[in-house]
Write a protein that binds this DNA or RNA. Structure first.
Length: 106
DNA sequence: CAAATGACGTAGC
DNA sequence: TGCTACGCCATTT
């Protein structure tokens, strides 16, 4: 079968992503901090980029610190993230989300 | 094993 | 508002 080397660190990051409520968003940096890994936002992105297509992890609720979707405009993933967020009631305009309104603040 | 890469963030200009 | 420079670090070349 496949080898999915889930490390302790990765497991914590996935747990945080899974805990982001529907209708809300979080940022790569926040997810890293909440997982006890401050300064490793980049690692969060690297991890999500390796998710298999069709993963049930709500990766689309994670955006960058500027409230923008981290994909080239109109790309397949950009379109998917936008529509899935809007389906949950998150307003996404021009690839941007108003963090003051939707940011998940535990 | 050295160098490049990347779904990032912050600071500075 | 935008760009550059760094810092960060697992992965891939």
């Amino acid at each position: 079968m496949s080898d999915t080397p889930i490390t302790e660190t990765a497991a914590r990051i996935f747990h945080v992503v899974r805990s982001v409520p529907a209708g809300c968003v979080s940022t790569y940096g926040d997810v890293a901090r909440l997982a006890g890994l401050p300064g490793r936002a980049r690692y969060v992105g690297t991890l999500l980029s390796r998710l298999p297509t069709g993963s049930r992890l709500p990766w689309f609720r994670v955006i960058n610190s500027q409230g923008r979707i981290s994909f080239p405009e109109q790309s397949p993933l950009w379109l998917e993230q936008t529509s899935r967020l809007q389906a949950e009631g998150v307003s996404v305009r021009e690839g941007r989300v108003d963090l003051r309104q939707y940011r998940w603040c535990p």
